[in-house]
């Protein structure tokens, strides 16, 4: 009984850890897509951010410098996406694909050229070059209390600062979107850019600000991967998380609070897959490890097929804005 409870706590704990990069990337996509700019380049931005973060953290010995570098590089790629799809009205999907490849290739080439460790960055130690876990007050002292103790000390406490940042970003995003002028305009430009234009607001600048927000959050997601969750960058370490985040965004119908639930669900699936991979169900059959790995994707497809309800994307999404004659 207690063992089962502890297992559940452990799974939930890793759910939190695994859903953080998804959540940050998902919120990143939310800013961009709510402003009418589709972004399948989340993966690439996260990857580039992870590389830049780990590289800067190891060179300067500071996780914070790593974080800043991750964000800057991710923003730079966002601006490329903006330049292609906002300024030059290119196809947003194509631009996103391009960014994914540029990030995938250049992280390896530059990593090899700078560090010569087969595309890895040097491992980050506990000398401040990696985000340490934060123990919330009294975490140790109340660990002994049944049920609540472990929930507090294992599940809520003991994460790196970026985990708390990610979950704080959810209500913050909601507040920005629905309670600020920027949010009002951002939502408007994703629905009807002409209305924004005639109201005397620059569509281009507004959308650029949205993709910059997207870049910041993708940078955070990347830094979390390489400077907090892991101790350094490994080739292709995002491994499709950007795409899962995109699916979560659709699930969440482009709403911040829903986005958190969707990402927790996918994080949970991932946690279960890691925990139970290849586990035999006695007397019945064996679930292949590969099936568990593919399960998040399979579930995404199943959900897309039927149980998602009607997910209506922002009306102007994917459409470059052209002044009508």
């Amino acid at each position: 009984m207690i063992e089962a409870f502890n297992t559940i706590i452990l799974i939930l704990d890793s759910t939190v850890r695994l859903s953080v990069p998804l959540l940050l990337a998902c919120l990143a996509g939310l800013y961009s897509e709510r402003a009418g700019v589709f972004d399948i380049g989340l993966e690439g931005k996260m990857l580039a951010g992870a590389f830049a973060g780990a590289a800067a953290a190891s060179v300067y010995g500071s996780a914070w410098i790593g974080l800043v570098a991750a964000i800057l590089v991710s923003i730079a790629l966002s601006l490329v996406h903006g330049f292609a799809s906002i300024t030059h009205r290119g196809n947003q999907i194509v631009s996103g694909v391009a960014i994914n490849f540029i990030a995938a290739g250049s992280t390896i080439i530059l990593g090899q050229a700078w560090f010569r460790q087969g595309g890895r960055t040097p491992p980050l130690g506990s000398d401040g070059s990696r985000f340490e876990t934060i123990n919330l007050p009294f975490a140790d002292s109340i660990n002994g209390i049944p049920v609540l103790g472990p929930i507090y000390s294992e599940l809520l406490s003991g994460h790196s600062i970026l985990v708390y940042v990610a979950f704080a970003a959810v209500p913050l995003t909601w507040w920005v979107l629905f309670r600020t002028r920027f949010g009002l305009r951002l939502r408007a430009v994703g629905e009807n850019p002409a209305a924004v234009d005639t109201a005397g607001i620059s569509v281009v600048w507004l959308r650029y600000r949205a993709v910059i927000c997207c870049g910041i959050l993708c940078g955070l997601a990347g830094a979390y991967l390489s400077v907090a969750q892991n101790a350094g960058f490994v080739k292709d370490m995002t491994a499709g998380k950007g795409f899962i985040a995109l699916a979560a965004l659709i699930f969440a119908k482009w709403k911040p609070i829903n986005a958190m639930y969707a990402c927790l669900l996918f994080g949970f699936l991932d946690a279960i897959a890691i925990r139970f991979s290849g586990i035999k169900i006695p007397g019945l059959f064996e679930i292949p490890a590969q099936f568990m790995q593919a399960l998040p994707y399979i579930l995404t497809v199943i959900l897309l097929a039927g149980f998602i309800g009607k997910a209506i994307p922002p009306k102007a999404g994917g459409q470059p804005y052209v002044k009508e004659r």
Partner: peptide, 21 residues
């Protein structure tokens, strides 16, 4: 030039907001 899923009020203040909030 209206945002169809916004309220009347939101449409009216769009671009003529007084402050950041």
């Amino acid at each position: 030039m209206l945002v169809e899923n916004f309220t009347v009020l939101e449409n009216i203040i769009l671009g003529a907001e007084d402050s950041q909030l």
